Simulated assay, not measured.
Amino acid sequence: MQEKARKIVMDYFNAHADKTDKKQITMDDVFVVWFCKTLQNWKCLVSTSVSDGMYYEVTHNGDKGETYVDVYKKWENICVKD
């Protein structure tokens, strides 16, 4: 499951990276930040070693046999005091 999520992200990045950057990543550049499995469904939060601020949410729907990818860019991290 986690291997599948990492491969999906690697393939996505390599297909969407700016061709002029001539940057391609391998599985060694992709890592799972968080993983959860419930029954036949699972979700992975995945990132890469590329410093582009992107992260990926890979969700598998076991009932439908489908996997979805949401791609996000982190804009900032702020502290909100209680």
Rank of each mutant, 00 (worst) to 15 (best):
K7G: 08
F31D: 05
M1P: 09
K7Y: 04
I25V: 11
N14V: 01
V30L: 01
D21W: 09
V9N: 05
K7L: 15
W34I: 01
F35W: 10
A15V: 06
D18I: 09
D18H: 12
M10S: 03
H16N: 14
F35S: 08
H16S: 10
K4Y: 12
A17Y: 12
K19Y: 08
K7N: 13
E3G: 01
Q2A: 07
D11K: 04
M10V: 05
M10I: 03
D11F: 06
H16E: 13
M10P: 03
M10Q: 12
D28A: 11
Q2V: 08
A17Q: 14
C36T: 14
F31H: 10
I8L: 10
D29Q: 06
M27W: 03
C36R: 15
V9H: 01
I8Q: 01
W34Y: 11
M10H: 00
E3Y: 09
V30G: 06
T20S: 15
A5P: 04
D28N: 11
K19W: 09
W34V: 00
E3F: 09
F13M: 08
D11E: 15
D11L: 12
V33W: 03
A5Y: 06
V32W: 03
D21V: 00
M10N: 04
F13H: 07
K22N: 15
E3L: 12
T26E: 11
K22W: 08
